[in-house]
């Protein structure tokens, strides 16, 4: 964390600079909420949310281990919401509950409700297949299929039956790659394996693959942690662009990234949602003692 704070002195992290300058004064100020208080601080709900999570509990190992403790959180329309917190705080688990990827984990159980546009996705009659088409996911490590670039993007539309003809497929592939900012780089080698691209390109290919199915929400689980700063910058710009059409939830360990790309930030700690609020407020003026400790690098 120390290193990250030093790195944060890059020119484009103005917000962060401002925050750093004020760190000194914050240290001595007494917080409104002490460390021991585990209740969520801040406004967790929004008007007309895309996704509404209500009292979500998640357990691992057949209920032995509680990973997420009674979290209520809304994801707004066309916003990027960042989830930060120390390793093992449950932010990825929570993220994965939004498209039911946790279903694939043996012994994982979820209580509570998650509404996608008013429909509880954990209802018995909900099929995960259309749900995951609606709520796409980009993973930590770029994981293109070992197929051609074209097939990578075309795969989702094909299995969902979104395309009937070759022309339609071509169109959707091109459109998705353009949206993911990869078209110019790969248009001449669509038949080459997706695994032959560089790390950043692979991750953008994964984003293209996700948006090819036409999702409404995109979940990103530390999408840049395996990438170099240049690739990271490209993806971050892309997120800003994608926000116009989709709601994006991003889990990140990089606070600069959270501050750069998100409108709201949620701070998780040991399975609790500690603080949620506008990104600027979380970084410049955290209310909870734990949040302040984390962003100033006291722990984590």
């Amino acid at each position: 964390m120390q290193a990250e704070i030093i790195n944060a002195m890059s020119p484009d992290a103005e917000l962060f600079q401002a925050y750093s300058n004020r760190t000194q004064s914050m240290e001595n100020r007494s917080m409104q909420v002490p460390r021991g208080d585990r209740r969520t601080v801040g406004q967790a709900t929004v008007e007309n949310p895309k996704v509404r999570c209500e009292n979500v509990d998640i357990f691992y190992d057949l209920g032995e281990k509680k990973a997420i403790n009674n979290i209520t959180l809304d994801i707004g329309q066309n916003e990027v919401i960042a989830m930060i917190g120390p390793s093992g705080c449950g932010k990825s688990t929570f993220l994965r509950s939004m498209n039911r990827m946790n279903d694939t984990i043996e012994g994982c159980r979820m209580d509570g409700k998650i509404f996608l546009e008013g429909k509880n996705i954990y209802d018995k009659d909900v099929d995960v297949v259309p749900l995951r088409a609606q709520v796409g996911m980009v993973f930590q490590k770029p994981n293109p299929f070992p197929k051609s670039i074209y097939d990578n993007v075309a795969y989702g539309p094909k299995i969902h039956g979104l395309v009937r003809t070759k022309n339609q497929t071509d169109e959707i592939v091109e459109h998705s790659l353009i949206r993911a900012g990869l078209w110019e780089e790969v248009k001449d080698r669509l038949d080459k394996p997706g695994t032959g691209l560089s790390g950043g390109q692979q991750q953008r290919l994964c984003i293209a693959r996700t948006i090819a199915v036409g999702p409404e929400v995109i979940l990103m689980d530390e999408p840049c942690s395996a990438l170099d700063p240049i690739a990271t910058a490209i993806i971050e710009d892309l997120m800003d662009e994608l926000r116009k059409e989709y709601s994006i939830v991003i889990v990140t360990h990089s606070m600069q990234q959270a501050s750069r790309v998100s409108q709201r930030t949620a701070f998780f700690h040991l399975g609790d949602l500690i603080e949620i609020g506008p990104t600027e407020q979380i970084f410049l003026n955290p209310i909870h003692q734990l949040t302040q400790d984390y962003i100033t690098g006291r722990f984590g």
Partner: peptide, 23 residues
């Protein structure tokens, strides 16, 4: 077979059988 491939397929909305047969 790396689990990331399984997640990738499931993440797009492939059913389990599709994930197994296609990837």
């Amino acid at each position: 077979v790396p689990p990331s491939i399984r997640e990738a397929a499931l993440g797009i909305g492939a059913s389990k059988t599709q994930m197994v047969c296609h990837h």
